[in-house]
């Protein structure tokens, strides 16, 4: 227990403190940007983007090795991830625009196919560069082991930038999430704003890959906003509550995970967030289940009395 306390108060060592701080910033950015996605009902688009990052990571590694590097530069790998995540996003948009298929089919198709391509490339790397690719698998489930100081700073900086952009674009994004047609009549370029919304989510996804892993990163974008929704009916409030839940959950998760080797960072963060979601769903006064059940029972009595 004292180990956890140490980690929470940033006493568990310089690296752990850095990782926890980076995670917290990323969590706030993810919660805030995820809110707009949730309101736009496109939460799972980011899942496809995350899975679509895998081929980019492996390709970036291969390119860096081909140019004589060790292939370990996090910035380089994340650039690859961003590029192929972006291609995945374009593929989804193309499928929904050009064909009769609905968005859910496009999401699933891109997710499965890009991830499949990533796995093919991964087996290729394993046969070509036996031993030297160590670390790429870490992107599947996230790993803070061997994380460098620069890596943690990169994550923290990235989170801060995304957060700032969210704040700058909060009004147009709220409008588009609520009523794209109306936003268009006001002269907003809804396509560009939609793209920016997805771009921010993609940025969070890519930045968080090393920490949380591509299978689970989507949880950071979905769970805090979904939990925040129970507490409020107002978008502006929801964004900040989601940011708060995301930041606190990520910080707590990273701190707990730093106390023992068998506590992988990504899963712990997700489980902490899930606990927050469960509590919110049950007890939040605005839209929680308990409050709703009480109101429903009261209405039932009233109606049966014929009031």
């Amino acid at each position: 227990m004292s180990l956890v306390l140490d980690a929470l108060t940033l006493q568990a060592g310089y690296n752990a403190a850095l990782v926890a701080t980076g995670a917290a910033l990323l969590g706030v950015a993810a919660g805030a940007s995820g809110s707009f996605l949730l309101l736009r009902k496109r939460a799972l688009v980011s899942d496809a983007v995350a899975h679509a990052a895998l081929p980019g990571i492996v390709l970036a590694f291969m390119v860096m090795v081909a140019f004589g590097g060790a292939g370990r530069s996090l910035a380089g790998l994340l650039l690859g991830a961003a590029l192929s995540g972006g291609v995945g996003l374009l593929a989804m948009t193309w499928i929904t625009k050009r064909t009769r298929l609905a968005e859910d089919a496009a999401i699933g198709a891109v997710l499965g196919v890009f991830f499949g391509a990533g796995v093919v490339l991964l087996t290729l790397v394993q046969t070509m560069q036996a031993g030297r690719q160590a670390g790429l698998e870490g992107f599947l489930l996230g790993s803070t082991a061997g994380m460098l100081r620069e890596d943690a700073i990169l994550i923290a900086l990235g989170g801060a930038v995304v957060l700032a952009l969210c704040w700058l674009m909060r009004r147009p994004m709220t409008l588009v999430a609520f009523d794209p047609a109306y936003a268009a009549t006001l002269g907003y370029n809804t396509r560009a704003i939609d793209l920016a919304m997805m771009g921010l989510a993609t940025a969070v996804t890519v930045i968080g890959l090393k920490l949380v892993g591509l299978v689970l990163i989507v949880a950071l974008l979905i769970i805090p906003p979904a939990a925040a929704r129970f507490w409020t009916e107002r978008t502006g409030v929801m964004v900040w509550v989601a940011g708060g839940i995301g930041g606190a959950g990520a910080y707590l998760g990273a701190a707990i995970s730093a106390t023992a080797p068998a506590l992988p960072t990504g899963p712990i963060i997700v489980l902490v967030l899930a606990a927050g979601f469960t509590l919110s769903m049950l007890f939040a006064p605005a839209r929680g289940i308990l409050g709703g059940a009480l109101r429903h029972a009261r209405l039932r009595r009233q109606m049966q009395r014929g009031e």
């Binding site: 709703g292 109101r295 429903h296 209405l299 109606m303 049966q304 014929g306």
Partner: peptide, 13 residues
């Protein structure tokens, strides 16, 4: 006949 939608009445008696 009475029906509720969530916690709102829809059709009453």
């Amino acid at each position: 006949l009475s029906v509720t939608y969530g916690d709102k009445p829809a059709v009453q008696a």
